[in-house]
């Protein structure tokens, strides 16, 4: 559907094609959910986009010390973050696997996939929290430096979105439990899978940004005109 063409329609002109009189019985819930998910992803993107813009802007003030670059900075060696990333990637793979299971009607695989996804997601959250504790113990407190503040803030917001996803996913699991109907699972699971992949993508962007060296951050900020 070409939106420009739609907007040029003259609604007062009666189309010569006779209106088909098929019975319309209301919206398709699956399609509606998909539309909604698209909007949700757009909103979340805007949210993180704005956070990132403020991050880049704030990074140009003299007191900003990026968390990577010099040897004493915690993310110069980012192996811990790679480990966490792997956990989240596993969650994404697992949920994709579960989705495949639901498509081919295999309840076992579906349940295993979802469980693994939930497990890895929780593990990721715990690992992120552990990372917070480690940073604290190294003296990188929330209010110590704007770079620290942004690290805590962005990981927290990302984590909250994952938790929100988990709530919805739990809901989905309960539905399988209740009506034993794997078909009713496909559509919502598809949406959850998209959401998980999306959050993995968001995390990769945040990861790249938060572990960037000062030169990279400055270059990005310059590109945005700060």
């Amino acid at each position: 559907m070409n939106i420009l063409k739609v907007l040029r329609d003259k609604p007062w002109v009666h189309s010569t094609a006779s209106a088909t009189l098929e019975q319309y019985s209301g919206p398709d819930p699956v399609a509606a959910s998909q539309v909604m998910l698209r909007f949700v992803l757009a909103i979340v993107s805007v949210l993180f986009f704005l956070f990132i813009i403020t991050f880049l802007s704030r990074s140009q003030y003299p007191d900003f010390e990026a968390l990577a670059g010099s040897p004493w900075q915690p993310f110069t060696d980012s192996s811990r973050l790679w480990f966490n990333t792997a956990l989240l990637a596993c969650a994404s793979l697992a949920i994709q696997w579960g989705l495949g299971g639901s498509r081919s009607g295999k309840l076992n695989i579906t349940v295993a996939g979802i469980s693994a996804a939930v497990f890895f997601t929780l593990l990721f959250l715990v690992a992120q929290f552990d990372l917070w504790l480690r940073l604290q113990s190294m003296g990188f407190y929330l209010s110590g430096n704007p770079a620290n503040s942004y690290f805590y803030l962005l990981t927290a917001v990302h984590g909250l979105h994952l938790i929100g996803g988990l709530v919805v996913l739990t809901n989905v699991v309960f539905r399988v439990w209740y009506n034993h109907n794997i078909d009713s699972l496909k559509a919502p699971l598809q949406l959850c899978t998209t959401y998980w992949h999306f959050l993995l993508g968001v995390w990769l962007v945040l990861f790249a940004l938060l572990t960037s060296r000062p030169e990279t951050i400055n270059a990005l900020a310059a590109m945005c005109g700060f």
Partner: peptide, 20 residues
């Protein structure tokens, strides 16, 4: 808001084109 946009995009009755 998610409801409003989704309803407008998905729940228009038969014959209700966007420009109508």
């Amino acid at each position: 808001g998610l409801n409003y946009v989704t309803t407008v995009l998905q729940a228009r009755t038969h014959g209700m084109t966007l420009m109508r």
